[in-house]
């Protein structure tokens, strides 16, 4: 159901670089794929610069979903900051990297280094 609303796919043009984002099954928290693991820290997400890496990350995401670890993994097109950090190109995914705009004291923005 959420699929048709998934914003990453709406970004026009090149879908790379990209990160892989999902929700943690037991916690519900947004998580990002790293090398072989998941992180809650948006700045620690693994970045795919080429199609093969992106595809391999998607496969890893699907496996983690099948193993009842995460829900709804999908690739998110990002732009890199000067520091090389991945900022989602779509405002919906960017909201997930930060937390609610009306509660700056909550979510990722309250816990982790800002991306940009």
């Amino acid at each position: 159901m959420a699929k048709d609303h998934r914003a990453g796919s709406k970004v026009r043009g090149d879908k790379l670089p990209a990160i892989l984002m999902a929700s943690h099954l037991l916690e519900g928290d947004t998580v990002f794929l790293t090398d072989g693991d998941w992180t809650r820290d948006p700045s620690a997400a693994k970045i795919a610069h080429d199609a093969e890496t992106a595809e391999a990350m998607e496969v890893e995401g699907k496996a983690a979903a099948a193993a009842n670890l995460v829900i709804d993994p999908y690739l998110v097109p990002v732009e890199l900051t000067d520091a090389g950090l991945p900022v989602a190109r779509h405002f919906r995914d960017a909201m997930r990297q930060k937390g609610p705009s009306v509660h700056k004291d909550m979510g990722k923005q309250a816990e982790f280094q800002p991306l940009g």
Binding site: L25, L26, G28, T30, N68
Partner: peptide, 27 residues
Amino acid sequence: RVDGSLSEDEFKPLRLKNGLYLQLHAY
């Protein structure tokens, strides 16, 4: 759900019938 008896597709309507959504940042 956690032990895999229920898939996410099966669990989702069950959790919804008990008021539990998955939103952008959390349940």
